[in-house]
C-alpha cells in the first residue's frame, strides 16, 4: 500500500515539474483560406503602433522587417520614403491604424497589392528581481488592398528572462538578435 502511494507521488511530481517547464507558445496565426497569396507581389509596410516604452522601437523593428521581407525575394517591399509619400497623399491621419477607406485610397496612390500593419507590444529590457533581459513582442497583420480585408495575422514574442539570466545574470541577448528572431518567426508563419 505504501509503495502504491509513493509511486503516485512520484508520477504526480513528474507531471507537475513537466507542466512547470513548458513555455508559453505563440497564439495561433490567422491565414485566410480564400486568399491567393501568390497574387501579392508588392506590399507597403505602414508604421507600427508602438506600445513599448522606447520611442524609436517601432522604426527600428519596421526597418528590420522591411529589409528581411525584401530579402526573401518573394514580395517587393516599397521603400519607406515612398510609403510616407503615399500616406501623405492619401491623407491618412493615423497610418498605424488605417481604415478600409484609407487602405483603398492608398492602393490607388502606391499601386500595392497589400499593406502590412502591426503593433509593437514590448521592446526593451524587462526586470524581475535582480535579473534583466531584453524582450520583444510584435504582432503583424496583412490587409489586401482590393477589398480592405485582413488576410493574415500573426504574432511572436522572443527574449525575456531565462533560467541562465536568473542564475548567471547574463543580461540576455542583444536587442538586434531578438528582433531578427521575432521577424524570422513571423516570416515563417507568413510563408508556411
Amino acid at each position: 500500500m505504501k509503495r502504491f502511494y509513493s509511486g503516485r507521488w512520484f508520477v504526480g511530481c513528474l507531471l507537475f515539474i513537466s507542466v512547470g517547464c513548458t513555455t508559453a507558445s505563440n497564439p495561433p496565426d490567422y491565414t485566410s483560406q480564400r486568399m491567393d497569396f501568390s497574387a501579392v507581389r508588392s506590399v507597403a509596410v505602414l508604421p507600427l503602433l508602438n506600445l513599448s516604452s522606447d520611442d524609436q522601437g517601432g522604426e527600428r523593428v519596421r526597418d528590420a522587417f522591411m529589409g528581411m521581407l525584401l530579402a526573401t525575394e518573394a514580395i517587393y517591399v516599397l521603400p519607406p520614403g515612398e510609403v510616407a509619400r503615399g500616406i501623405a497623399l492619401s491623407g491618412m491621419r493615423m497610418p498605424e491604424t488605417p481604415s478600409i477607406e484609407e487602405i483603398l485610397k492608398l492602393r490607388t496612390v502606391l499601386e500595392v497589392d497589400a499593406v502590412i500593419t502591426g503593433v509593437l507590444r514590448e521592446y526593451g529590457a524587462v526586470r524581475s528581481g535582480s535579473a534583466e533581459a531584453n524582450l520583444l513582442s510584435l504582432s503583424l497583420q496583412m490587409i489586401e488592398t482590393q477589398t480592405g480585408t485582413m488576410v493574415w495575422s500573426a504574432s511572436s514574442t522572443r527574449g525575456g528572462i531565462s533560467m541562465s539570466d536568473r542564475m548567471l545574470g547574463s543580461g540576455g541577448q542583444p536587442m538586434n538578435d531578438i528582433t531578427t528572431e521575432v521577424i524570422n518567426d513571423l516570416l515563417d508563419q507568413l510563408f508556411e
Binding site: P79, P80, G81, E82, V83, A84, R85
Partner: peptide, 10 residues
C-alpha cells in the same frame, strides 16, 4: 525634405 527617406519622386 525626406522624413522617411527618398520616395520614387525624389
Amino acid at each position: 525634405i525626406m522624413q522617411q527617406g527618398p520616395s520614387l519622386a525624389a
